[in-house]
Each structure stands twice: as structure tokens, then as C-alpha cells.
Amino acid sequence: MSERQPLIELVNVSKEYRIRNRSNPFLKRSIRAVDGLSLAICPGEVFGLVGESGCGKSTTGQMLAGIFPPSSGEIRYRGKSVKQMTAEEKRAMRREIQIVLQDPYASLNPKRRIGWIVEEPLVIHTKLDRRERRKRVEEMMETVGLDAGYLSAFPHELSGGQRQRVNIAAALMLDSKFLVADEPVSALDVSIQSQILNLLKSLKETRNLTYLFISHDLNVVQYMSDRIGVMYLGRLVECGGVEDVYGDPRHPYTRALLSAVPSVAESARKRILLSGEVPSLLDPPSGCAFHTRCSRAAPVCAQAAPEMKQIGDGHWARCRFAEETGKE
């Protein structure tokens, strides 16, 4: 990471959800979907966030997009903390950060036409008249590669790939600078995935965008991202440049995760078969969240959660043995 000011920063952000206890309604339990997450994304970069179910990557993305606020911690945008922003500044920030959600089938209102959906951000945020709005919508449709004829169609008339383009179009209507892409291609066929990935890449270049690219597909993330973060049970366990993390993973979970990815290419990775299941968020392990499945776990791992250790330039891992875990 350079000395540039990060575009967006998460500082020790957590998100807790209250769960009602069935036997005793007064005793509330909570789960920490995101636990003490700190990361920084620089302008113009693609930050990939990976992890398996329950790791908190979607929650993180949605917090950044303003869908709900964090329970604790701070989000800083262009250096200023959101908590200290005026309503005006907040609104300006909301315009600049947009989200593209995973399921192209569920993320479009089935009762509204495409034109209405894409136009909505303009209706909410600007005072443009109808003609001007229509013009911008048509321009955007062209930018994302959709025929303007689709503006009067309903979502169910479009294919998965086309719907995803609509989502991207709606997300970019307000000239956003930061896009959270939550599993943007996971629900699409392989041959369509490449179309959407190419679109995202070219939009990034032409409009100078920054992405948080969330995915469980490690091949896609490796292709798209400049830097990546690996999450496990709400915590960030490793982050760094793509070559560093993929080439020299230091956290045992990252190593296991990368080795489990099926790939069409021949892989030289040693296969690590993890035992057991991802622990439930209702009953997280003490100390290091991964120690229950880790082959290198020592007694101390169950007692105290490790801090992030710097491995190299911009490469960090949350493990006591990160430095010793060299390339095997």
C-alpha cells in the first residue's frame, strides 16, 4: 500500500446481532457477525474479500454501503469519520458508495420496469427533469452494454447476465466512486461470468472506480483483485497484495482455503484437508477463532486471540506462527 490516503477505512468495526434466547426471553445472546475488523482500501484498487459462509464478508460490504450501521468502531471516508459527518456530507458519501448485490434475480423489484429501477437513484438524489433523467439512463444502458429497448421490460424478461448489468447500471447512476460488489458473478453461468467481469474491469478503468470485491470464488478474486483480505468467523485473518497472499499464505486457514480450491489448471499446492465444520457464531471458540481446526494450534491459541502480525510490505496475518509458516 502506498502513502496515498485510503479512500475508505474500517477501524475496529464490529457488528452484533441480538438473538432471542428461547428458554429465557430476558437473557439475550448476541452474535458478532463482524468482530474488530480493520482494513483500508486505496483509491483505484480492487480489494477482494474472501471467506466461507458466516465469515462476515457480506455484512462488511453492506455496512460500507450504508445498509446498516456498525455496532461499534469507525468507518472513515476520505479521511473523515462518518460519525463526525454532517447530514449533508453523509448524503454526499452515500451517493459515492454503491452496492451490487449477489442474486441478480432477487435484486430487482419484480413489479417495476427496468427504466424505473435504473432511474430511481436520480429521482431520489437529483432535481433533474424527466428528459434529462431519461438521457442519462440511456447513456448508462449503453455503457453497460444493454439495448435501450430493455428499459420498458420487466426483470423477469431478462437473463441473469442482463439483470446483473442492470444492477451495475443502477449502482453507477450517481457517478459513484466506490462500488461494493457482493458476489456479482456467483449466480451466473461460467461463460457469462467472463462478460460481467470484463465489464467491471473496463468500468473501473474508464470511470476511475474503487471496488470491494466480495466472493467465495477464489479464482475470480485472484483474477480481479489487487489486494485481498481473508475472513473467518467475523475476523480478518490475513490481508495483503494478491501475489503475497496467494503465493505465500501465512495464516493456516488461508493455506487450507487456497489448497481446497478446485482449479482447471494444474496446481502445485500441498493439499490440506480441514477437519470439522465452521463453528457456529452462537458459540465461537475462545482465543483464536481457528484453533479448533488448526493443525498447528498450541494451548496458547485457545486462551488469547492473536493480533495482526506484519509479514511483509502490506502483508499481515493474524497468527502467532505466521512468521514461521514459510513456504512448504
Binding site: R94, A106, K111
Partner: peptide, 26 residues
């Protein structure tokens, strides 16, 4: 809880707008 409501919310739709224009028709 549907994605399209979340998407509209992230684009700045007010609760009233969400309820009247997004949730109600569905």
C-alpha cells in the same frame, strides 16, 4: 429483507419511499 429493498435503501431511498413504492406493490 429482499435484496431489491436493500439495494434501494443503499441508493438512498427513504423508509416511506421504500414502503410505498417498493414493498407495497409486491
Amino acid at each position: 429483507e429482499m435484496d431489491y429493498v436493500k439495494a434501494a435503501r443503499s441508493r438512498g431511498a427513504s423508509p416511506l419511499r421504500l414502503m410505498a413504492l417498493h414493498i407495497l406493490p409486491n
